[in-house]
């Protein structure tokens, strides 16, 4: 009995390239799910900020004008530059120049530390000026309590961001070490790319924190 079977023109097995592409897509999806949870974490704080800003517009403008806008702008420039070096690190890691990639990652870490140093100096300045509710708060305007609320939100949001950045700096370091001990890994540039996604996300959070805390008056 003859049976005509229709064979597909090409075998159904995915090629190595297709498998790799699929793995990378799954990695990116997982990372974006994690980042979505981070969006909701920071988003909740932004929501609280806007609700109270809507309730006390004058006090929030007053609190904002107490902050050092130039340090905020400088830190934005530092973080944007660190995103460029991170993107270049991923680019170099995807290519074949692992050494250049490590160099760009070290530069990214240094810029992250510079951001934290400037932020720390700013916190110190805020403390000296009596802008830290609970520790040293000497502001005495008509809407003292609402200005204190603004400053509490400022410290919580920037400190949570600084915590994320610190974790990011450590993770970039981990990626460098990982690349050194496993140079012939299955897909060596993938950890760099994933940590890059996290780094750029932290940059985006600051891109919104800067106008919201320093510029809205």
């Amino acid at each position: 009995m003859t049976q005509t079977t229709t064979q597909p023109a090409t075998p159904a097995w995915p090629t190595e390239d297709e498998k790799l592409a699929r793995e990378r897509e799954v990695n990116a999806l997982g990372m974006w799910v994690f980042l979505a949870s981070e969006i909701m974490l920071f988003g909740g704080l932004f929501l609280v900020y806007f609700v109270y800003r809507f309730r006390y517009p004058a006090a929030f403008a007053e609190g904002s004008s107490e902050l050092n806008m130039w340090l905020g702008a400088l830190n934005t420039a530092v973080l944007l530059t660190s995103s460029l070096t991170m993107a270049l690190a991923v680019h170099q890691a995807r290519g074949s120049s692992r050494k250049t990639a490590v160099l760009f990652m070290l530069l990214t870490m240094a810029l992250g530390l510079l951001f934290l140093a400037i932020k720390g100096y700013e916190y110190w300045q805020d403390y000296q000026e009596g802008l830290v509710p609970g520790l040293n708060f000497t502001y005495s305007g008509a809407e003292q309590q609402a200005v204190a609320l603004f400053l509490v939100l400022y410290f919580v949001m920037t400190a949570l961001h600084a915590l994320h950045l610190s974790i990011g700096i450590v993770m970039v370091g981990v990626a460098i070490v990982w690349g050194q001990i496993r140079p012939f890994a299955h897909d060596p540039a993938e950890p760099v790319e994933m940590i890059g996604l996290y780094w750029h996300f932290i940059d985006i959070v600051w891109v919104f924190l800067f106008p919201v805390l320093y510029l809205l008056r």
């Binding site: 990116a28 944007l80 890059g196 996604l197 940059d203 891109v207 106008p211």
Partner: peptide, 15 residues
């Protein structure tokens, strides 16, 4: 402007 910046980072830096 912040939205524009975020969009540029997401589309290009985050691939």
């Amino acid at each position: 402007i912040a939205l524009l910046k975020a969009l540029l980072i997401i589309l290009f830096f985050m691939h």
